[in-house]
Amino acid sequence: MLVHTINEVREQVKAWKKEGLSVGLVPTMGYLHEGHRSLIEKAVSENDRVVVSVFVNPTQFGPNEDYDDYPRDIEKDYDLCSDAGASLVFNPAPDEMYFPDRCTTVNVEGLSKGLCGAKRPVHFGGVCLVVSKLLNIVTPDRAYFGEKDAQQLAIIKRMVRDLSMDVQIVGCPIVREADGLAKSSRNTYLSADERQAALVLSRSLNKAKAAMEDGMRNASEIYKVISDEIASEPLAKADYIEIVDSETLQPVETVEKDVLVAIAVFVGKTRLIDNFTYRV
């Protein structure tokens, strides 16, 4: 079922809950790929009904970012959702989600300052706003997010905890192409040469992971392993390379607890992200 209004979603979810059915939510910005399918299938396996939202959220894009160019294909998205077992696809227009005179914001301080937040200052405020709205609209038992957006996942978990929201946030592993590139809707922006160059993200992280497994613990040395590999690819330019505490997202000098190793890299004009968590 494809719906476009908040009232339609609420009426359907109320009917399900009246039957005693559990509800899962998979928030997306559309142009779905196998990574999204894995989230939907996980949700289907753990809930009686699953709602997938398909909404390119304007509030999480800053000036000169790719909101207008972000790929959209609701018919293809709906087919993937149906095939993966979703019960309802919610595809609202921006004016359905946001009042023109809205004045409420949702911000998670601290966790949103570094990594992608340092480069995209409005991004996570927009993410928190839309996710909080979707959680209020759908009232799911569980909501599913990909670990590729590791900072987003940490921020949403903290928001849900701090605001006492009655929902379980479930993180799901990164899904990759056969050659290692993390699946992303933005991969469609890459030319053939850029697509090959983009492999430097997973390659640099794999080298760092191998070095850490061999005993490397100094964050600056881990940084250099990644930086040198990215620098070896002419079409790639690092936006950031960070080794941070996996819970607080604060930079570490030495790996003594679980850490998130996260990178953002421009390949041509396309900004891609990737990461892994190293558990001590």
Rank of each mutant, 00 (worst) to 15 (best):
M1Y: 05
L2G: 11
L2Y: 06
V3F: 02
H4E: 15
T5E: 14
E8Y: 03
E8H: 08
V9H: 02
V13H: 05
K14A: 14
G24H: 04
V26I: 09
P27A: 10
Y31T: 05
H36E: 10
H36I: 05
I40S: 01
I40C: 03
K42T: 14
A43I: 05
V51S: 07
T59M: 08
Y67P: 02
D69L: 13
R72D: 06
D79I: 10
C81E: 03
C81L: 03
A84I: 01
A86W: 00
S87R: 03
V89S: 05
A93Q: 14
P94E: 13
P94A: 15
R102D: 09
C103K: 15
T105S: 15
G110K: 15
L111A: 10
S112I: 02
S112A: 14
L115I: 12
A118R: 14
K119C: 06
P121A: 12
V122F: 04
V122H: 09
H123N: 08
C128I: 08
K133E: 08
V138G: 10
P140M: 15
D141C: 08
D141I: 07
A143P: 01
A143F: 04
Y144D: 04
F145L: 08
E147I: 00
D149Q: 12
D149W: 04
D149M: 10
A150W: 00
I155D: 04
I156M: 11
R161D: 14
M165V: 14
Q168G: 09
P173T: 06
I174N: 05
R176I: 04
L181C: 09
L181H: 01
A182Q: 05
S185K: 08
S185V: 07
R186G: 02
S191A: 10
R195D: 04
A197N: 07
S204E: 10
A210G: 09
A211S: 12
D214H: 06
G215I: 07
G215F: 06
M216V: 13
A219E: 09
A219F: 01
A219S: 15
S220C: 06
E221F: 04
I222E: 02
K224V: 11
S227F: 05
E229L: 03
A231N: 13
E233V: 04
P234V: 11
K237Y: 01
I243C: 12
V244S: 06
T254C: 10
D258I: 04
I263A: 05
A264D: 04
A264Y: 01
A264N: 03
V265F: 00
F266W: 07
G268N: 13
K269M: 10
T270N: 09
D274G: 00
Y278V: 05
